[in-house]
Design a protein around this nucleic acid. Sequence first.
DNA 1: AACAAAACTAAACAAGTGTTTAATTTAAAC
DNA 2: GTTTAAATTAAACACTTGTTTAGTTTTGTT
Lengths: 208, 208
Amino acid sequence: MKSNFNDKQIQILEVAETLFAEKGFDGTSIRNIAKVAKINIAMVSYYFGSKERLLESLIVYRTSDLKNQLESLLQEDLEPIDKINKLIELYINRINSNRGIYRILHFEFTSKKREQNLQAFSELKKGNLKSLETIIEEGQKKGIFRKDVIIPLIAPTILGTFFHFHMNKPFFENLLNLKTEDLYNNYIKTNLTKHIQQTIKALLIYES
Amino acid sequence: MKSNFNDKQIQILEVAETLFAEKGFDGTSIRNIAKVAKINIAMVSYYFGSKERLLESLIVYRTSDLKNQLESLLQEDLEPIDKINKLIELYINRINSNRGIYRILHFEFTSKKREQNLQAFSELKKGNLKSLETIIEEGQKKGIFRKDVIIPLIAPTILGTFFHFHMNKPFFENLLNLKTEDLYNNYIKTNLTKHIQQTIKALLIYES
DNA sequence: AACAAAACTAAACAAGTGTTTAATTTAAAC
DNA sequence: GTTTAAATTAAACACTTGTTTAGTTTTGTT
């Protein structure tokens, strides 16, 4: 898919992403963005119309291809539990390498202030949930997964665990001795991902 | 413990809590707080020194007695798994009835901006983690809990699941048909709490 | 080279920000 | 009732905010 944004716009979007993620939408000024991106402050209005619409553009720019990735996973010939594991890995990997935008989504679109722009984001979430549901029901039909789980609450467990870990980054860096960015990323890729997979597997398979 | 704040200060703190939770720290102005609390804008500086220190006071005001609650739970004569369940219930209940401040903590103390004030909050988290650790190790010694779990990652699973659910409130209200505030709260108290307890139990007990 | 559209700029705009000041009112102590 | 301290106020402070304006420069087309 060809992007609708030109080089200059992308440059602005990526600076905005970094700053919004670091300091929040309200905590970031247009002058702030302009300075880092080395552009004139009028360029944001010129290219995006307003600060608010810059945020909208940023979300479009970053969330456009997740849907496809999920759908191709569904088609793969794998056992349900392996599909779940792969889905978790895909999610964590993706969110972790697009921390900025997901942090922004997490922060900005939960407050009452920006409820309007919520619709497109809500559709994305519904689609993702549907994918998870398909896999779990497949496993339930095969008799592998237990049936008394609340599927819509599994997504919060997967994503919430990651987010809560990542939102408390300084705390866990200190606690787990993850001094460098590499160590931190590696811990997410191995231990945290494994923990989430282990948790969901236990939940789906354990018989009380 | 007697509170260090007088009636007027508490009035300001509670208005600030609501507004910070709704619109974020940066999204809330002192004039905004003053208007809702029906006080003069100079009173915030007069009583708290600055907007930043108002936030600090708010956190002290709201997190002072959690520690005691946890410690008395540790002393109770219960099976490890029941202690875990009670801890989860205590947490969810507490956070759910103090949504405002926990949302603020979640939002404001993760960005790089406010790393200084982080220390007191970090101590609180470390204490909480210690409590969880004590209970789990007790269960491991008794041979009830498996030993290959990463304890520091269990807290993110408990809290993260709740937060992710709550931060996407409009989405889940719609998805699960929780039209009234009562229905929403009830869902948290029963289904969400149960889901988290079920998840952690499965993780701790399930043998692969 | 001449023209037109797009890209870019510095400056100004009105409105909002947190904080301080100096004055006034209220309350407490004697 | 007078004095002293605390509480409260309106106004001003200096600064930052998002956006617009009226130009200038650059780019592409003929």
